[in-house]
Design a protein around this nucleic acid. Structure first.
Lengths: 199, 199
DNA sequence: TCAAAATGACTGACCGTCGGTCATTTAAAA
DNA sequence: TTTTAAATGACCGACGGTCAGTCATTTTGA
């Protein structure tokens, strides 16, 4: 027998080791040789843990998303109103401490659009479902407590999709500050109405 | 003297000549040689009219967008309610006769995300501004006529961004039918509220 | 005749593979 | 218990093949 490495762990280690260079340059301006050098391993080794260059991005997104979700849970728990909770969901688009995730997620979306891959699509839809249900729960709680009107849950999907749209818009045209105020403005406009009673 | 070709026109001609193959295969699975063959010109000629492969996608999007905008104008003019007008805006995401535009626009977004390019960004933001103002006008008319409540214009940006988000969602997970009903459901939920009076 | 237009051979960059090397572990012999 | 041969998997980087973009040459038509 010989040394047995934890393949799953090493995959994560490599991904994290080259995360910064990915954030900095983006996948298009990075060669696999450069990535290998950044991770201090041989080029061939990359392919023992990833099926292609894109797969590395996938792993980084996975890691960062997981971490983000944990921090988001805390933020949402400590928010007092439904309005504030919904605003917290959008923090991914402007919070400074998740700028890495934003950068990598952008690459990820780009890859998903140009070469749809079964695993990636499943990852996307599982995350989407997850967040969507979370959204719905938050809104439903708001309805139950009488904070917002009935039927508000119907906006969950829309808000979620809107969030995705922010990615395209924000990564091309706006500054982070614009994005933040844009989202808050929309959320406020919506909640001003949702908080009215309709019966 | 010698032959003088209309550079602008020829650029369009080439773009249209290879549009179908782009829609079919996507930029990633297309080599410049194949594109040149489809357009019945030499590979080098491509570079007399386009600065790179991505630039061809840009031109195709431009052409199809222009055409789409014309048809959309008619559709919106003939719509009777504000609600219907807003729904028409989203037809790009499910109408069968713009499936080509959808396919190419997907490529375009992918390219924009991975290699932000000044010209592309300007194109994006000019279109965004254009549609946004159109949106606002439609909503404002609705407010003026008393059809929807005051403040409804505040949703213009959100609706527009939401539309962009549909691209990511729709191109990865859902079928066209899902997308259509999804959008209509959200629009209806919003308009049910907007059509209530708030004073 | 000549300049613009068109071309395709060529080049350099880069992705992913593959045969080979090396370090470590096992196990059998001493 | 010590030694050493065999076995195995981790690791590597040279190499093949592909392809975007360039450029020297040819074609075309006013």
């Amino acid at each position: 027998m010989a040394i047995i490495v934890d393949k799953v762990q090493k995959r994560k280690d490599i991904a994290l080791a080259c995360k910064d260079i990915f954030v900095q340059k983006g996948i298009k301006d990075l060669s696999v040789s450069q990535i290998a050098k950044a991770a201090k391993i041989g080029k061939g080794t990359i392919y023992d843990y990833f099926c292609n260059k894109e797969d590395i991005v996938f792993e980084i997104v996975n890691i960062l998303m997981k971490k983000y979700k944990e921090s988001l849970t805390k933020k949402i728990e400590s928010a007092t109103s439904t309005r504030e909770k919904i605003k917290q969901f959008s923090s991914i688009f402007y919070d400074e401490d998740v700028s890495d995730l934003r950068a990598i997620y952008k690459e990820f979306i780009s890859i998903s659009l140009s070469s749809p891959n079964k695993e990636m699509m499943e990852f996307q839809s599982s995350y989407a479902k997850d967040y969507y249900e979370w959204f719905v729960d938050v809104l439903r709680d708001g309805v139950k407590s009488g904070e917002i009107r009935e039927g508000s849950e119907d906006f969950a999907r829309g808000l979620f999709v809107l969030a995705k749209g922010m990615f395209i818009s924000s990564s091309s045209t706006n500054t982070i500050e614009d994005v933040k105020s844009e989202i808050h403005k929309f959320t406020d406009a919506l909640f001003d109405i949702l908080e009215e009673k309709n019966d």
